[in-house]
Design a protein around this nucleic acid. Structure first.
Lengths: 342, 342
DNA sequence: CTGAAAGCGCTAACAA
DNA sequence: TTGTTAGCGCTTTCAG
């Protein structure tokens, strides 16, 4: 059960453990006689030797592990990101320790400590809050961090994100091109960076494009949930301000719009067009299929992992914030308005 | 950066490191003078001491980590299972090392080795193949394993699964109660235990209920994918054998049925009812909302974690295979057939 | 109840 | 190029 150790290998190869260690480590192999290397390697192979990372870590103070904090794995946004991270890290023999915060700051800080105590070599934070004491804490403790899908105000850590602003702009232009002039917007919580960035981009693009910029066409929600989306659309409809299309800050909010529209007997896209954001799985199966903005989640994760490896290796790349392109995916939920107003 | 060590704590408390260790460990605390314990604890607190699990593991040969192998985190079936596992394990200070096999046996075996070399205390296998050399390997190596969503033929490890047979039976009865007599079945790959169990249950229930048991009403697919589901339904329709409802081995296959039906202009549920299995997220948003069988995925993961902890603690519970109840979720895709045949 | 000592398996100076 | 030595931080015998 407790497998062969380096000492066993050394013994069998007739060398000292130290030499065996050097022979087996690619970094130091060059400093040892080629013949010896071969002898050690063959001994290791016949014994079925596998190094003990625990012992190595104790000595080197590096664990080849990375902590990843996300709000909730069950949210379909995250699995692809996590896979991107894992695929890149696994190729470099790193392992991910994943933890779900459920967006609770206390739990987040608690998990941070737990992972810290496990001596992870770095962190990937996939949590969404703009306020983020952890990031500064990590910076203070000198531990590498990469942010995913979010920014801190102080920009103390590198980040990878989808180009939300461009995504929102694409949706607005898409709808404007279809002939819509009055667009409503359902914004996500302004405590999240996506919430802030997307709303800002909406306002900006609406202004640029010369569309109706009525503040009563914007509702800010408290959470990225279907219920909040439904409530928001109801509020919008009740206000009486005319609009022919609604853009939701993400797909869940858009699903809520579907609910509210159905409940009020309003046809989509005939009377109101709806667009979401994130391009969750199966949106093409909805009725009508939901127009959304595709975010390259897998690539975001992969890139975050690469940045983190760079940081761990103390190769601080020149780029601090990587923005990956988003892409409008037009589907059946957006169409020209019933009658173009003059 | 390298935080205080046990030695520091001991020094500050004026005791030997060995004593400090005993005082801090709940298992051995009783063998230490209460006053001393208090002194050590206060020293630890003021120094902000956190134990080093690496060093502990090296000594105890236990890592408080568990390896979890799943085909693909991106498949919506798995995130809830993983969360169930993580939540239960985290509460016991265990950490999950997650790895995706993409259903490749080579990769699976490779990942097993990688996790083994990291000295995980046990494994949870969420892969689906009936053939599973890894399970026997683990048994031989004396390392605890729990299977999730699958069974091996030799039953060498405990397993947790949804009650697939009951789920399928519920669907069959549901359709029969609606008046259907000729049910088609699209089976998943017979190399997976779910594929086998569900098909068997279908045949059994059809026989029990005295429904049409025509072999040409069954198609076996090569993969649990939408495309395979569409192909299967096309094949079924082309055969010309009459049927008014089709049960798919899982939701992805059912989505494929939607595609094929739409393509042929066949109304669902008007002319053909469709049912899936697993109750993936957002099925209620489809049009028509897909009738499916809910599988308690989170609980399956949680229970698997509990069984694994039992095994690790050498408390082999009496139960070897835990089956959790599944529940039919009737939605709009199933309805009475157009005209009840006599 | 506590101290002393040994050692888990490995790596990294330092010598030779 | 290789051997020697000294731990990494912790637990756990064994004495006392």
């Amino acid at each position: 059960m407790p497998g062969p150790t380096l000492k066993d290998v050394a013994q069998r190869a007739g060398v000292h453990p130290g030499t065996a260690s050097r022979a087996l480590n690619p970094e130091t192999r060059s400093r040892v006689n080629a013949a010896t290397v071969r002898r050690v390697e063959s001994a290791a192979r016949t014994l079925g030797y596998v190094g003990n990372p625990i012992a190595r870590s104790l000595r080197t103070a590096r664990t080849l592990t990375v902590g990843m904090l996300i709000p909730d794995l069950t949210n379909p946004l995250f699995p692809p990101i996590v896979r991107g991270v894992e695929d890149v890290l696994a190729a470099r023999d790193y392992t991910v320790l994943l933890a779900n915060t459920d967006s609770s700051p206390e739990r987040e800080s608690q998990l941070y400590d737990a992972l810290r105590s496990r001596r992870v070599d770095g962190f990937i934070f996939g949590t969404a809050l703009t306020q983020h004491p952890l990031t500064t804490r990590a910076a203070r403790e000198g531990i590498p961090v990469v942010l995913v899908n979010r920014l801190t105000d102080d920009m103390v850590a590198p980040a990878v994100m989808g180009d939300d602003a461009s995504g929102v702009a694409q949706v607005v232009h898409h709808l404007a091109d279809l002939g819509h002039t009055a667009l409503a917007y359902i914004a996500g919580p302004q405590s999240t960076s996506s919430g802030v960035i997307r709303l800002r981009a909406f306002r900006q693009t609406v202004a640029d494009r010369g569309l109706v910029a009525d503040p009563s066409l914007v509702v800010v929600t408290q959470a990225w949930t279907e219920d909040e989306g439904a409530d928001a659309l109801r509020a919008l409809l009740d206000r009486g301000t005319r609009f022919t299309a609604v853009i939701a800050g993400n797909d869940m909010l858009a699903l809520g719009c579907y609910d509210a529209l159905r409940e009020r007997g309003i046809a989509c896209p005939k009377r109101i067009s709806v667009a979401g954001f994130n391009d969750m799985p199966f949106l093409d199966k909805l009725s009508p299929p939901l127009t959304s903005v595709h975010v390259p989640t897998y690539e975001i994760g992969a890139e975050a992992a690469r940045l983190l490896l760079d940081q761990i290796a103390e190769r601080p790349g020149p780029v601090r914030v990587v923005t990956l392109p988003t892409r409008l995916v037009p589907r059946g939920s957006t169409a020209a308005p019933e009658s173009t107003p003059h």
